[in-house]
Simulated scan of single mutants.
Amino acid sequence: MSDAEGGPFDFTLPGTEGDEINKYRLSDYTDGGAVVLVFYPFDFSPVCTEELCGIRDAEWLSFTENVDVFGISRDSCYAHKRFIKQYDLSFPLLSDTEGEVIRKFDLVYDEWEHHRGVPKRALVTLDESHEVRYRWQTEDAYNSPDMDELEQTVLSLVDEPVR
């Protein structure tokens, strides 16, 4: 994982949109706009499934240009493929199997439901300069984020003039 070009939060992780496994570098997506990172504990867990399907169904995200969404967990790309297909998710899921990115963003549970190093449930929005513009996280992985706050942040980034 290298972050030299894109600043302190840049990363490259394997991921999938459901068919092929590819590498995704954060700075490739922030160069032209904002990125929403959705950190979550596990594919197929009830709260994670509800949250990711809620993001899939957020019409304002579908119609917002220059904003990419990525889900990040420690699950493998093979689990992600099945999860994407089962729930028709419209954005890539990235595999942080070593936990490097969740540590970089300080979003790791020491232990959650007898699993060590699980990502906290969190939303992070970065602009094109990798500045964190919105951050929501919870210590209780059963809590869900306020999608209205995320929507307002994303829409404010889209409405800002290009720097």
Rank of each mutant, 00 (worst) to 15 (best):
S2W: 07
S2K: 12
E5R: 14
G6Q: 10
G6A: 05
F9Y: 15
D10M: 10
F11G: 14
T12K: 15
P14W: 04
P14Q: 10
G15V: 01
G15E: 00
G18N: 00
D19F: 03
N22W: 03
Y24E: 01
R25W: 01
L26R: 05
L26H: 09
D31K: 15
G32T: 11
G32P: 00
G32Q: 05
A34F: 09
A34N: 04
A34D: 06
P41T: 07
C48W: 01
C53M: 11
C53L: 06
E59P: 04
W60A: 02
L61I: 13
S62H: 11
F63I: 14
T64K: 02
V67G: 06
D68M: 02
V69Y: 08
G71K: 06
I72D: 03
I72L: 13
C77T: 12
C77H: 00
Y78S: 13
A79G: 06
K81P: 03
K81F: 08
R82F: 07
F83G: 01
F83E: 02
K85S: 15
K85E: 15
D88P: 01
L89W: 12
L89Y: 05
L89I: 13
S90N: 15
F91V: 07
F91H: 07
L93H: 11
L93K: 02
D96Q: 06
E98Q: 07
E100N: 08
V101F: 05
L107K: 04
L107F: 01
D110G: 06
H114M: 13
H114V: 09
R116N: 08
V118F: 01
K120N: 10
T125E: 01
T125L: 11
D127H: 04
D127C: 09
D127G: 06
S129H: 15
Y134W: 05
Y134M: 09
E139S: 14
D140F: 08
A141S: 13
P145Q: 06
P145T: 05
D146I: 07
M147N: 02
M147F: 15
D148V: 10
D148H: 10
L150I: 09
Q152N: 14
Q152A: 15
T153C: 15
V154P: 04
D159M: 11
D159Q: 14
D159I: 05
P161E: 15
V162S: 14
